[in-house]
């Protein structure tokens, strides 16, 4: 019941989470660490209690839109975090947040949470590995951007970031939704407008996915484009961190992969290095044929690659 309720709240927050915050609704999820479904306060006592065998290296897992950290759980209960703990000694920290808020806001909140964590973690932190799935990868990037501007103390501890199915160059499905909504709004019929109004209720976070808007200034200059072409992204990857990108593909067939990607995120967006800055090593980008967007956050094949990247010096 608890996990189903948490998932329902995650979906609700992804759909209308910005509205919940604006109306001070108790269903809005605050950004916080969770372990086995329970909230872990970012205080030294609570962290020491929740992680009695805390290690100096941690991996911070950030879920995607309309998810909770349960999106990483495999059928046998393991996940990328628990596997990295068992194999490499990284303590997994699971972030739960309101995915309906603007990505920029969640980035600032994640940066603040990691600042607190860096101060309150029970043992001195040596390394923070960031792992974001889907929208979570964009939240990680927004947090890194915000931390770089504010010279946040946790950022120098990050040496690698892992992005799993992250739409670095936006999600065409949202851009299509934006166009459909605008077309419906333009039709001078009261009931069509009613449907358009309903379609437009989708959250700020969801709308941000269209062009992968990481900053408020990017959201402000958002324009309606008829083209479905991916935008060039104005926020490059931070050069001080090694970035590793994982993309799923529905099939081995090249045309299926080119058209549909992992069914939600196109390959060009998940591996969109051309817009992410020069110098991204091709060995740090991996496409997994046969893995959909839903399967990619809990795949042993993906884990093997993530582990290999984390093992590298």
């Amino acid at each position: 019941m608890g996990q189903k309720l948490d998932l329902a709240l995650g979906i609700l927050n992804g759909a209308v989470g910005d509205y919940l915050v604006r109306t001070d609704n108790g269903l809005a999820l605050p950004m916080a660490l969770h372990l086995h479904g329970a909230l872990v306060a970012a205080t030294r006592v609570a962290l020491a209690d929740a992680y009695p065998a805390a290690t100096p290296r941690v991996v911070v897992l950030v879920h995607g839109l309309m998810n909770t950290e349960s999106v990483f759980a495999m059928p046998d209960g393991r996940d990328y975090g628990s596997l990295l703990r068992a194999d490499l000694g990284l303590t997994p920290l699971y972030v739960r947040y309101n995915s309906g808020l603007p990505i920029a806001d969640n980035g600032v909140a994640l940066s603040a949470l990691l600042t607190t964590l860096a101060a309150e973690y029970p043992v001195p932190l040596e390394e923070i590995v960031l792992l974001g799935y889907s929208m979570g990868g964009l939240v990680v990037r927004a947090a890194s951007h915000s931390a770089a501007l504010a010279a946040a103390p946790w950022l120098p501890l990050v040496r690698r970031a892992l992005y799993v199915g992250t739409p670095h160059r936006g999600a065409p499905l949202e851009r299509v939704g934006r166009i459909v909504s605008a077309v419906l709004q333009a039709i001078p019929d009261p009931y069509t407008r009613l449907i358009a109004d309903l379609a437009d209720l989708r959250s700020d976070g969801l709308k941000d996915l269209g062009d992968a808007d990481l900053r408020h200034e990017d959201r402000a200059r958002r324009t309606l484009r008829v083209t479905l072409r991916d935008p060039e992204h104005p926020v490059p990857l931070l050069p001080a961190i090694t970035h590793h990108l994982v993309a799923g593909a529905l099939s081995d067939e090249r045309w299926v992969t080119a058209l549909f990607g992992d069914a939600v995120v196109p390959i060009s967006s998940a591996t969109g290095w051309r817009s992410l800055g020069e110098g991204l090593d091709p060995s740090r980008v991996r496409v997994f044929p046969g893995l959909s967007h839903a399967a990619i956050p809990r795949s042993l094949d993906v884990y093997a690659q993530l582990r290999a990247w984390c093992e590298a010096p």
Partner: peptide
């Protein structure tokens, strides 16, 4: 308690805003 109150508020908002939207469409037609 906060979640129950939140659910109550959300359902109330849905009916409030939903009825107003349908009223606008009804009136315009």
């Amino acid at each position: 308690k906060q979640r129950l109150l939140g659910l109550r508020a959300l359902l109330e908002d849905v009916v409030e805003h939903g009825s107003s939207a349908v009223e606008r469409a009804h009136r315009a037609t």
